[in-house]
């Protein structure tokens, strides 16, 4: 079993080729520009699924940022603390099952995760393209600030 390093991982998930679907990645890219405190790892997870097992296992706490098709108005952001994969919003869009498979494996490996999920609602039927929709694009800095605030409250508990 890999030892937990106690680090904080901010993980953006999504496919940047599919418009708003990639919002999680856009947010972590924005965070990288803003800068994060030492000991915080920021990772563009893409649609990496099983490839993310190692960085997630090494982290003591994970802030996950992902798009969701939960029927809420586009741009809505919800802070969730899911325990099992079944607690996650039903459809994490195009990378849905890969991520859920991965989350379940942590329970199988006796390594429950401490996850805070920022689920950002997007409209369905994303056209292929690199650009975010104007309404999501405008709110990326706000999502990044939410993640920064979460980092700020998590750090005192980490060491």
């Amino acid at each position: 079993m890999t030892e937990c390093s106690g680090n904080l991982l901010v993980l953006g998930i999504g496919n940047v080729l599919m418009g708003d679907e990639g919002v999680g990645v856009h947010v972590v890219r924005h965070l990288e520009q803003l800068g994060v405190p030492p000991g915080v790892e920021v990772l563009d997870g893409g649609t990496g699924s099983f490839l993310l097992l190692d960085p997630m296992q090494r982290a003591g706490k994970i802030i996950l940022i992902d798009a969701t098709l939960d029927g809420n108005p586009a741009g809505t952001v919800r802070r969730l603390t899911p325990r099992f994969s079944t607690d996650y919003p039903r459809t994490l869009t195009a990378h849905d099952i890969g991520l859920k498979d991965l989350l379940d494996t942590f329970y199988l490996l006796d390594h429950p995760l401490d996850v805070v999920l920022f689920a950002i609602s997007i409209a369905s039927l994303q056209p292929i393209g690199l650009e975010l929709s104007p309404e999501i694009e405008a709110r990326v800095p706000e999502y990044a600030q939410l993640a920064l605030a979460e980092i700020g409250s998590a750090i005192p508990q980490m060491s």
Binding site: L17, G46, T47, H95, G98
Partner: peptide, 10 residues
């Protein structure tokens, strides 16, 4: 760009 076409076959 093409590397992002698939999360498995990157």
């Amino acid at each position: 760009f093409t590397e992002r076409a698939c999360g498995v076959c990157t």
